[in-house]
Amino acid sequence: MTSLPWIEPDKLWFPPADEALDDPDGLLAVGGDLSPERLQLAYRNGIFPWFSDDQPILWWSPDPRCILIPGQVHVSRSLRRTLNQRRFRITADQCFGRIIRLCASNRSEGTWITDEMIDAYSELHRLGIAHSIEVWNQNGDLAGGMYGVALGRCFFGESMFSLQTNASKVLMVHLSHQLQQWGYELMDCQVESSHLLSMGATTISRSEFLSILKAGVDAQPKALNWDFTWQWPR
């Protein structure tokens, strides 16, 4: 078995992402910590943490990478009808703690969003780096949500949940169009799924992904304030 680089908590570094294993796809390194500095360094280099409670911190950079180009989300006719009915209201950064905990609890296959991860991303949120997106129904109840990390003109989606039919799709449409308006270059979806592909996501090589990141993470977006409500134009 190929040995993986071990990262000491007091050493702020990562091996190059292209040294990740093919099997399991993208596993790059073990160890380190979840400090804001390390997490930002990871995302800037196309790396993210993914591990369970009984494992050390594992760092990943899969190849290929699933992304969604802002503004290129696919809107089916049925979804457009839902959007035009304005059954949902979309907000950002209204209840980050609630969103990340619901992302953790609404996964039938178990979760990698451990208490350690919740604490780490909550700190990133306090620093204005991690954000939540909320979907509210007409009764004012939470219908879905997502959280992720924004660096420069790149948004890294971490996890999403849906408590009501079409809530996650409505969220993806709004987020995609808002990121486009802000001049974002990509939304990282990490690993492909049938749901993401049906919404217009695609896969690109790790090298292409890293090339986009190199230019995008230091570029200034057109807006920095995520604390507002989005509306879908009729």
Rank of each mutant, 00 (worst) to 15 (best):
C154I: 14
S168Q: 07
M172L: 15
F155H: 08
F161H: 05
N137T: 10
M160W: 01
S162F: 08
V135K: 05
I129H: 09
N139L: 11
M187C: 09
G148N: 04
G148D: 00
I133Q: 03
T165M: 10
L179T: 06
T165H: 14
Q178A: 09
H174V: 00
Q164D: 15
V135N: 03
Q164Y: 00
V173W: 05
C154W: 00
G157C: 05
G157Y: 00
G152Q: 07
Q180A: 15
C154H: 05
H174W: 05
C189K: 01
Q181P: 02
F156T: 03
G157D: 08
L151V: 08
M146Q: 12
I129A: 12
L175H: 06
A143H: 12
Q190K: 11
V170M: 04
Y147G: 01
Q138M: 09
G157V: 05
E134F: 04
G157L: 01
M146W: 06
A150H: 06
I133D: 00
S159K: 04
Q190N: 11
K169T: 06
V170N: 07
D188E: 13
G152A: 09
G144M: 11
M187W: 04
F161L: 03
W182M: 13
N166Q: 14
M146F: 12
Q180M: 15
E134I: 10
Q164L: 13
V170E: 09
Q138V: 07
M172I: 15
F161P: 06
M172W: 00
A167S: 15
F161K: 03
W136H: 12
H174P: 05
R153P: 10
